[in-house]
Design a protein around this nucleic acid. Structure first.
Length: 273
DNA sequence: TTCCAGGACCGGG
DNA sequence: CCCGGTCATGGA
């Protein structure tokens, strides 16, 4: 399955795992391309460097972390298989072909929730800057220049004034409300991950500043509930222009969220990789 | 200057 | 249920 190479471990074939598409399709904000072509990121307080080499995806990580990363990239799932239902309408088929290689990451729930609260009415470069600053100011240093995402407990211990250097405006109060829900145990991610997605949806929306769209992003990217289909301005446009009137994404089945990711990536890039 | 960015909330119709 | 105004901030 995975064997040691000269410089690292082979995680997968590049055929079904595109680093560029996976990290730049809009689902995550903390993976960055380095000058040498490798991507560098942090998840669950672990650092990873990962790159493509001879048609394979290779990574540098601690040996004992390899199973973790294997799961993080959802490598047990056959994405070509679960993409079979995305054959129509024609626009969706084009999106799915264009996005082949995207993996839906199993991101840290709290980080995902917080990140998509920040994302509302904001642009991606600025979202990344705010999150980066949050980690640098309130996370723990792992290696030089790389920090963990601060825990909900840590954020809950802060005031609006403490968070003011982040310059995230009205979202500050939302972040604090979310941190209190999570740190107090009123919201328990382990519980949410085990109940039906529509129940988790209702529960997470109790947080001030978490509406339908942020809730769905949290469920899809943070709890890996693949049936959720976040609808933002880009999706509204795509649905209006390329799908039948009153189209219900639920017809896409239990992995509709992957279809959403294909559509979002294609629509945002204009089909230009 | 105005508009927009992976929205949410609130009020009124 | 849907509508418009409002909420900070920064870049184009």
């Amino acid at each position: 399955m995975m064997k040691a190479e000269e410089n690292g471990f082979v995680l997968a074939s590049a055929e079904n795992f595109s680093l560029k598409k996976t990290f730049e399709c809009g689902q995550c904000f903390r993976w960055n391309l380095c000058g040498d072509g490798t991507y560098e990121g942090v998840a669950y307080g672990r650092v990873l460097r990962i790159w493509e080499e001879n048609g394979r995806i290779v990574c540098a990580a601690k040996d004992e972390d390899i199973p973790f990363w294997h799961d993080y990239f959802d490598l047990e799932t056959d994405y070509s298989e679960i993409s079979v239902p995305f054959s129509e309408p024609p626009y969706l088929r084009i999106c799915a072909e264009f996005g082949r290689g995207i993996r839906i990451l199993k991101q840290e729930p709290w980080e995902t929730l917080c990140s998509f609260i920040i994302s509302q009415c904001n642009n991606i470069p600025r979202i990344k800057r705010i999150i980066s600053a949050m980690c640098r100011l309130f996370g723990e240093e792992l290696e030089y220049g790389l920090y963990s995402f601060p825990s909900a407990q840590r954020i809950a211990s802060l005031s609006e004034k403490d968070l003011s250097p982040l310059r995230c405006g009205y979202r500050t109060a939302y972040i604090l409300d979310a941190a209190r829900y999570v740190s107090s145990g009123m919201i328990d991610f382990d519980v949410l991950s085990k109940i039906p997605s529509y129940e988790a949806f209702a529960a997470i929306k109790k947080i001030n500043g978490v509406g339908s769209k942020v809730a769905d992003c949290f469920l899809l990217y943070g709890l890996h509930k693949m049936d959720r289909f976040p609808v933002d301005v880009w999706m509204k446009r795509a649905l209006k222009e390329h799908f039948p009137e009153d189209y219900d994404p639920r017809v896409l089945g239990p992995h509709a969220g992957l279809a959403q990711q294909y559509i979002f990536y294609y629509t945002r890039t204009g089909g230009i990789s």
